[in-house]
């Protein structure tokens, strides 16, 4: 479904991605793991058109989408839940969701979609007319995911959905990702919380300083790579952070 070849991206003089190759098949739940600054978010940004890659190709459903504008990529069927949730704080929950359906709006389907979001995220129904900025962190994350789902994406990309959330909230977000995946949504997940991510994904890629260091199933990854060291850039493996 999504094929990335030799993707190189940079912020000015700093190269953030150096020849990344990655693939996501239809119906898969794939994680992109790595430490801070490894290039996870940069990869997602290059896919969704926020960042123009220096070179390399991004093919989605047989079509080249590298260098396309974000609005064009969304139309192709890739929806992004950006890092830090990026809720429109001054807009109500309703308006946030309505914008999520900007390109795909059909009155009847929209109403049905809203009902579906309320069943997935009951809190959004309760807060429907409140400004998004008044929601708690976890609620905002749910709104961000619901907003992304409103466009009926073929591929959903989540950038650090558990970041800054309480353990309970993290649980429900991971539960939700599993549910979405069971319903057939193809998902590319970027996570800091590697252990949690490996519990639910089909395959994972490990990024270190801009290149894919390893890819495979969660079992293979656990056997072959010391996840703690990959995250911390050291080899002592004694740190309990994030594991």
């Amino acid at each position: 479904m999504l094929t990335i070849k030799d993707l190189t991206a940079s912020y000015g003089a700093i190269t953030a991605l150096n020849g990344v190759c990655l693939e996501v098949a239809e119906g898969e739940l794939v994680a992109l793991l790595g430490s801070n600054g490894a290039g996870k978010s940069t990869t997602l940004k290059s896919i969704c058109g926020v960042l123009r890659p220096v070179q390399g190709s991004v093919t989605f459903l047989g079509e080249e989408i590298a260098n396309k504008a974000p609005e064009a990529v969304l139309k192709k069927g890739i929806s992004m839940v950006p890092e830090g949730r990026e809720i429109f704080g001054s807009l109500t929950v309703e308006e946030n969701l309505r914008l999520g359906a900007f390109t795909s709006y059909q009155r009847d389907r929209y109403k049905a979609d809203l009902e579906e979001m309320f069943s997935l995220f009951p809190i959004l129904g309760e807060r429907f007319t409140q400004p998004g900025g008044l929601l708690s962190g976890g609620e905002q994350q749910m709104l961000a995911i619901a907003r992304a789902l409103m466009s009926h994406p073929k591929l959903l990309m989540l950038d650090e959905p558990s970041l800054g959330l309480s353990p309970t909230m993290t649980d429900s977000i991971f539960e939700l990702i599993t549910t979405l995946r069971e319903r057939g949504t193809t998902i590319l997940l970027v996570e800091q919380n590697a252990e949690r991510a490996l519990e639910i994904v089909d395959r994972a890629y490990l990024l270190t300083t801009g290149s894919i260091e390893f890819s495979g199933t969660p079992e293979e990854l656990r056997q072959r790579v010391d996840i703690a060291s990959a995250y911390l850039g050291g080899g002592n493996g004694t740190c309990e952070v994030r594991l």
């Binding site: 969704c48 058109g49 926020v50 504008a69 974000p70 609005e71 969304l74 139309k75 929806s79 992004m80 950006p82 990026e86 429109f88 704080g89 001054s90 807009l91 914008l99 999520g100 900007f102 390109t103 795909s104 907003r147 466009s151």
Partner: peptide
């Protein structure tokens, strides 16, 4: 409010 995110909505 957030220009880039608005574009990510397809606007």
């Amino acid at each position: 409010d957030r220009f880039t995110t608005t574009r990510l909505m397809g606007v």
